[in-house]
Design a protein around this nucleic acid. Structure first.
Length: 282
DNA sequence: ATGTCTGGCATGTGTATATT
DNA sequence: AATATACACATGCCAGACAT
């Protein structure tokens, strides 16, 4: 390890040595969601208050224990082991964003709805997301909400095999517009910040081949050292505070509740895709 | 680091009206 | 009847915004 005393999160008082130790604990939870994906990291070499940059191409020198996978001319790191995770941590990679698509296959592993609050409405995000939970439940779909680690919430629906990103895009659009219609004061699908008008943005555009999402259990380059944390729907309905889930608190939570995503059943979307007329789209 | 979407601008096309 | 002018609207392209 280089510079063990470098302060990565000044407000939370986390040094690099602390961070790498936390990564060891986090590894059994984080790595499964990065395995078989193309990894993008966000590196903060000088800590969260200094400059950061996205990294897709594997940096060199590349240790022999690091495996990579090429996609569209980019040589991505394949985060599949603790040594690789610690190597990245030592390089100041504070965020881990796996691709939606898996290495070597073209169908999607999960359907994701990403909900982002507008400026100033952060406090109400859980209540808004509860509505989506109810809607999904009404469709007979079981899902797992997680904090993004920032201000948003992402709803994950693990899938059985064979669904394309094109189908999920149509499905996401359908859901987004439905929510927008049913709760016009609450939700919007407007991409532009100025058009969101204080509403919660239902982002279904982001889920596509080659794109990425903050992994479950990834830390974030936020001053509070928050972590993207799967929740129960009860916690969401109870108005959980995303800032309560961070590097300092995640250990106890995992010890108590384990990985809420691990046992989530894979869902079949055939009926709903047929309903919206996207059953056989590619 | 990289893909997608938008807004604006240039260009093109169509339709209506006016001019001769 | 032919041509000109006007403006609405479609299409194409690019730079910038936005996203993770």
């Amino acid at each position: 390890m280089t510079h063990p005393d470098k302060i990565l999160w000044p407000l939370a008082g986390i040094r690099k040595a602390d961070y790498l130790r936390a990564l060891v604990e986090l590894a059994p939870y984080l790595i499964p969601y990065c395995r078989d994906r193309y990894l993008t990291t966000i590196r903060y070499p000088g800590g969260v208050e200094e400059k950061h940059f996205y990294q897709k191409n594997a940096p060199s020198p590349l240790p022999e224990f690091v495996s990579t996978a090429e996609y569209n001319g980019v040589r991505y790191v394949h985060l599949d082991s603790l040594p690789t995770l610690l190597w990245l941590g030592n390089l100041g990679a504070l965020e881990f964003h796996p691709s939606f698509d898996r290495i070597g296959r073209s169908d999607a592993a999960e359907w994701v709805l990403d909900i982002d609050p507008s400026e100033g409405r952060e406090a109400g995000v859980m209540e808004a997301v509860s509505r989506i939970g109810d809607t999904l439940e009404g469709l007979g779909l079981s899902s797992v909400p997680k904090t993004s680690g920032a201000d948003g919430v992402q709803i994950l629906i693990p899938l059985t095999e064979g669904y394309s990103f094109g189908q999920l895009h149509r499905l996401g659009g359908f859901m987004g517009h439905y929510l927008e219609d049913k709760y016009p004061k609450l939700f919007t699908t407007e991409r532009r910040l100025k058009d969101r008008q204080g509403r919660y943005y239902v982002d279904y555009v982001q889920q596509a081949a080659g794109k990425s999402l903050a992994a479950p259990y990834t830390p974030r380059g936020r001053k509070e050292a928050t972590i993207s944390t799967p929740l129960t729907w009860e916690e969401v309905r109870g108005g959980a505070d995303p800032r309560a889930f961070h590097l300092g608190s995640i250990g106890a939570r995992l010890a108590e509740k384990g990985d809420l995503l691990a046992g989530a059943p894979r869902q079949n979307l055939d009926a709903i895709l047929k309903f919206i007329g996207a059953a056989s789209e590619s």
